[in-house]
Simulated scan of single mutants.
Amino acid sequence: MTERTTRLRRMAVTGAAAVGAVASLVGAAPAQAAANATTVYVWATDVNMRSCNLFSCPTYGSVKVSRMNVTAFCQQRGDVVRDGAYVNDWWLLVDAGGPKGWISAVYVRGGSNWGGIPGVSTDFAHCR
C-alpha cells in the first residue's frame, strides 16, 4: 500500500468514527419534550412560575421566566390574570430549564385576551 492510500483510509475511518459518534450522541440525547410539547415565547420579564394555575399555589421562589422560549406541555383555565390591556384565564404548564411550572398565557406570545395559545394542548393527560 502506498502512503497516500494508507492516509486516505485513516481519514475515512476517522471520518466514519466521527459521524458515528455524532449520530450516537444525537440518538442518546434525552428527548427534550414529549410529542405533545410546543415551544412558545414568553415576551415579559420576571414572570412567576407556580405549582398550579391558581394564585393560591406557591411560586417557585426565585424562579422567574423572562423573554425566552419555553416548552409548553398543556394549557388549562385557572385564575384570571390582568396586566395592562391584557387579560386571560388560561395557564400553561412549561419547562424553562428547571422544574415544570405554570405561567399565565397573558405573558406568552401568540395568544389573545380570554383565549388559549394556539398549538398548545388542552388535554389534561399532557399536564403531567
Rank of each mutant, 00 (worst) to 15 (best):
L25M: 13
G84F: 06
V19L: 09
R7N: 13
R10L: 15
K64Q: 05
R82W: 08
V80G: 00
R50E: 10
A12S: 07
G84K: 02
F73M: 12
W91N: 04
T122R: 13
S62F: 11
L8N: 07
Q75C: 04
N113Y: 09
R10M: 14
W91C: 05
L25A: 11
V70C: 00
R10T: 13
G97R: 07
R10A: 15
L54G: 05
A96H: 04
A105L: 07
V26A: 14
D83T: 08
P118Q: 09
A28S: 12
K64Y: 14
D89P: 13
N69C: 02
P118T: 10
R9C: 06
G97D: 03
G119M: 04
S24K: 01
A17E: 00
V19C: 01
Y41R: 00
N113W: 11
T45L: 06
A17D: 00
R128W: 03
G116R: 14
V120P: 09
V63S: 13
D79E: 06
M68R: 02
R4I: 13
T45C: 01
A16Q: 02
Q76Y: 03
W90N: 10
L54A: 14
F124G: 05
G20T: 09
V94T: 01
M1T: 06
Y41D: 05
G97T: 09
W90P: 08
N69L: 07
M49R: 06
T39E: 08
A33L: 04
S104A: 08
G98M: 04
G115K: 15
A18M: 12
V106D: 03
N53C: 05
I103V: 11
V120H: 08
W90T: 06
A21E: 00
V106M: 08
K100A: 05
S62A: 12
A105F: 11
G78L: 03
V81S: 06
Q76L: 09
T14G: 15
G27V: 04
A29Y: 12
F73S: 14
T59A: 14
R9V: 14
A28F: 09
C57G: 02
N113A: 10
R9Q: 06
S112M: 06
G15R: 00
V26P: 08
V19F: 05
C127T: 03
W43D: 07
V94C: 01
T122K: 12
I117D: 01
R9K: 11
R128F: 05
R109Y: 07
V94H: 00
A37T: 10
V22I: 15
V26D: 04
V47D: 02
S62I: 10
D95S: 11
C57V: 06
N36H: 15
G27N: 11
